[in-house]
Design a protein around this nucleic acid. Structure first.
Length: 613
DNA sequence: AAAAAAT
């Protein structure tokens, strides 16, 4: 390899021979070709149908991100470095008084329980973004805007110690190096522990998964151990966590396994595109918490493999996505037409970063006397993300992207390529752009719904590890995925929904780090101009004059208006319903007195009022 | 119109 200042992008032109990384511009090349002779990368492109090969077993090369000093100071360094393991394999699983120690639960399984913290130490096996909280600037929490509404909202806590989560869970919190609860955790955990239903708006990366997992795990530990038959045909999970993509379900599973380690609470994941029989065997070994995508869950239910009769906790991650047009019938079937206990009997929590009013109305069907909670983000929302919008005709997008990718290296990522996530509108467009990037010497890969699950997971791994530092993605990657070190999100095609834009750019600037988001705007996006300009204003971004003109020209209707006003999630639709309709939602609503607007002021000016008709 | 989610 040449000097560290010679990044892969240097070789994208014709002048230099391709350095190692450049020749690994696609999945197949991910490991084996990293030391291949320099040659034009054009020839290294492998068409999609030939890419479905198992990842190479080549050891982590010098390209592995562990060598990366990390521009963000000591906190970012700890992400890549091997975390010091200050706990032993058999770490205490103390069971305090009043705690059901669940002996006799899944004992046999526990003997074999893999230590998820050790797995994560292996960079080859590490899948999820670890130590989500470790790099967060907790000082910024003091200014976080919080909005709650509903009856008798339990007060927030300031420390994990204030909550009786149980010794085993506390130990895992320590292992995760979570020092203090994040804002969403401070508010949502007491609400959940009080048994209340919850609709929560909080940006991903702010500790959302833990916020809904801790109370579930704790509740199961405290609860009665029902005698369940290992190996029985039908299994009866106590908790169900649904998410809209397979990769997100995987990520939630990985994370919740850490939280549940040695608690005796078993977490199993089930999603499509992977062999169902393996998942069924895992279920037969016992399951307390089932993490699933909707389709596979329905399949397992129809095979009488899973019953929801014992469900005490239901969590929907990315809940607004789960309840939008495409998903809603499936979710309704699972929640209302299978054998799950009704709302009010089970406990239901919904989480997302965005919550359009009309979706809130739908969601209230699944909730009983719920609390609405909106928590802003560390570093006041998306201020951490520098948003740029550039006017680019469709025909110029590729060359413009190339310019950005070249410029990226000048941004100086300490000799390591920063990760760039490029969103496009269609699966075909994703394949085609990836092909073009690879053909031009850019090490790219792609993830979308037309690829096999193996290919999808491999693409994600290649991206995370830096083997393919450019990922071309459809909206399958827009939500929830925690990919550390995404420096740049490019909206090559601008999404049609402003909420999708919010989720997409949220893949960068995570955990207190800064990020850059660039969108390619042209006439075909004019319907989004107004909401885009408003969003940028709300997050203190400079709005180009030409975009402001588009915004002024366009009407502000349809689904493109901001769902919440303000800079985060949204606000309780029941407040508006009670004003304009003088009535409550379907199942009781809080009066305005529970409403606490915190530091959240002036978020929506007079112009926003019309969005709340 | 598109993406996602079961086989």
């Amino acid at each position: 390899m040449m000097s560290t200042s010679t990044s892969w992008a240097d070789s994208a032109g014709a002048d230099n021979p391709a350095p190692a990384a450049a020749s690994s511009g696609n999945d197949r090349a991910s490991g084996s070709s990293s030391s291949s002779a320099p040659r034009p990368t054009r020839s290294s492109y492998v068409p999609p149908h030939l890419r479905n090969r198992p990842p190479s077993s080549a050891p982590a090369s010098a390209d592995a991100p562990s060598a990366r000093p990390g521009p963000g100071g000591p906190t970012s360094g700890s992400r890549w470095g091997r975390p010091s393991r200050d706990f032993g394999r058999g770490g205490g699983r103390g069971s305090g008084g009043g705690w059901n120690n669940r002996i006799g639960g899944w004992d046999r399984g526990r003997d074999r329980e893999v230590n998820p913290f050790e797995i994560e130490d292996d960079p080859e096996l590490a899948v999820s973004g670890e130590q989500e909280n470790a790099g967060i600037n907790f000082d910024a929490y003091e200014d976080i805007p919080v909005e709650t509404s509903g009856e008798n909202v339990p007060p927030p806590v300031n420390t994990f110690a204030e909550i009786d989560l149980g010794a085993a869970l506390n130990e895992n919190i320590r292992r995760c190096k979570y020092v203090k609860p994040t804002p969403i955790q401070r508010h949502a955990i007491p609400i959940s522990l009080a048994g209340r239903d919850l609709m929560a708006c909080a940006q991903t990366g702010s500790g959302k998964t833990a916020a809904f997992c801790f109370p579930i795990i704790s509740g199961i530990m405290k609860g009665q151990v029902s005698q369940r038959q290992r190996g029985a045909r039908t299994v009866y999970p106590l908790a169900l966590i649904l998410s809209p993509t397979r990769e997100l379900s995987c990520q939630i599973h990985e994370e919740s396994r850490k939280f549940a380690y040695q608690t005796g609470v078993r977490v199993v994941v089930a999603y499509g595109g992977a062999p169902i029989h393996h998942q069924m065997r895992e279920l037969e070994r016992g399951v307390d918490i089932l993490v699933a995508t909707p389709g596979r869950l329905v399949d397992l239910f129809e095979r009488a493999k899973v019953s929801l009769q014992m469900i005490k906790y239901l969590a929907l991650d990315e809940a607004d996505r789960m309840l939008d047009m495409g998903f809603e019938p499936q979710i309704r079937k699972i929640v209302e037409q299978m054998d799950m206990p009704p709302r009010g009997v089970r406990q239901t929590v919904l989480f997302s970063a965005t919550f359009p009013k009309e979706i809130q109305r739908l969601a209230s069907d699944f909730l009983a006397n719920y609390i609405f909670l909106a928590v802003g983000r560390v570093g006041s929302s998306t201020d951490l993300i520098v948003q740029r919008v550039e006017f680019v005709h469709d025909s110029d997008k590729r060359s413009h992207l190339m310019d950005l990718l070249h410029a990226q290296k000048a941004n100086g990522a300490n000799g390591k390529q920063a990760l760039t996530l490029v969103f496009v509108e269609t699966k075909k467009g994703a394949d085609s752009l990836e092909y073009w990037l690879c053909s031009n010497g850019f090490p790219a890969t792609t993830i979308h719904g037309d690829r096999s699950q193996q290919e999808r997971e491999h693409a994600l791994r290649s991206f995370k590890s830096g083997i393919a530092p450019i990922l071309v993605a459809t909206d399958v990657a827009a939500r929830g995925l925690d990919i550390p070190h995404v420096a740049h999100v490019v909206n090559f095609d601008i999404p049609n929904d402003i909420d999708d834009y919010v989720h997409r750019i949220g893949r960068t600037g995570r955990a207190g780090k800064t990020g850059l988001a660039t969108a390619f705007f042209n006439e075909s996006n004019s319907s989004l101009a107004r909401s885009l300009a408003d969003l940028m204003k709300e997050s203190n971004q400079e709005v180009p004059a030409w975009l402001a003109r588009y915004a002024a020209r366009s009407s502000y209707g349809g689904k493109n208006r901001r769902s919440g006003g303000g800079r985060f999630g949204g606000r309780d639709f029941r407040r508006d319903a009670s004003i304009s309709r003088g009535g409550s939602g379907a199942n009781g609503y809080g009066d305005s007195r529970g409403y606490n607007i915190g530091a959240y002021g002036g978020g929506h000016g007079p112009a926003m009022t019309s969005a709340w008709d």
